[in-house]
């Protein structure tokens, strides 16, 4: 019996090759007739090159509020990392563990409440 993680490894290799097969197949089947207007960036029918230079700049920096969500995600994901071992071992830990976890959750909920109060959970 192959080790379970060995199977996952095999799966990973096949999963990486698998999406490349239709791409390769399509390479031989599809036509290839590029021209200038085809290769242009899609702008709802407007000519991209007529735009002023600063409007052609697409790779922009996003506003800072956006990253607050990423921070919140990291906080809660770390919480989850603690919650899973706790959940698995809960049966053998008893009431004490529940109280501990409630304290832990309350601290995190306070962070959520703070962000909520500050209006950081609003998408602007």
């Amino acid at each position: 019996m192959l080790d379970r993680y060995g199977l996952i490894g095999l799966f990973a290799i096949v999963a990486i090759i698998f999406p490349l097969i239709p791409l390769l197949l399509a390479r031989f089947l599809r036509p290839r007739k590029p021209n200038r207007s085809k290769m242009e960036t899609y702008e709802c029918g407007l000519e991209f090159e007529d735009f002023p230079v600063e409007a052609q700049q697409v790779w922009v920096q996003f506003r800072i509020q956006y990253y607050i969500f990423a921070l919140m995600f990291v906080v809660f994901d770390i919480e989850v990392v603690f919650l899973y071992p706790w959940a698995v071992a809960y049966n053998s830990l008893g009431l004490y563990a529940l109280v501990e976890m409630i304290i832990f959750l309350v601290i995190l909920v306070m962070a959520l409440a703070y962000a909520w109060r500050k209006g950081q959970l609003e998408w602007v």
């Binding site: 799966f11 990973a12 999963a15 990486i16 698998f18 999406p19 490349l20 239709p22 791409l23 197949l25 399509a26 390479r27 089947l29 599809r30 036509p31 290839r32 007739k33 590029p34 085809k38 290769m39 242009e40 960036t41 899609y42 991209f48 697409v58």
Partner: peptide
């Protein structure tokens, strides 16, 4: 399979090519 594959001239070719592959792998 038989549709033409159009890559915009301004695109980052490698990232553009790898994106669908990377999306598929974890789900598989």
């Amino acid at each position: 399979l038989t549709k033409e594959d159009i890559v915009p001239a301004n695109a980052d070719r490698w990232v553009h090519f790898l994106a669908p592959v990377v999306t598929m792998i974890p789900i598989t």
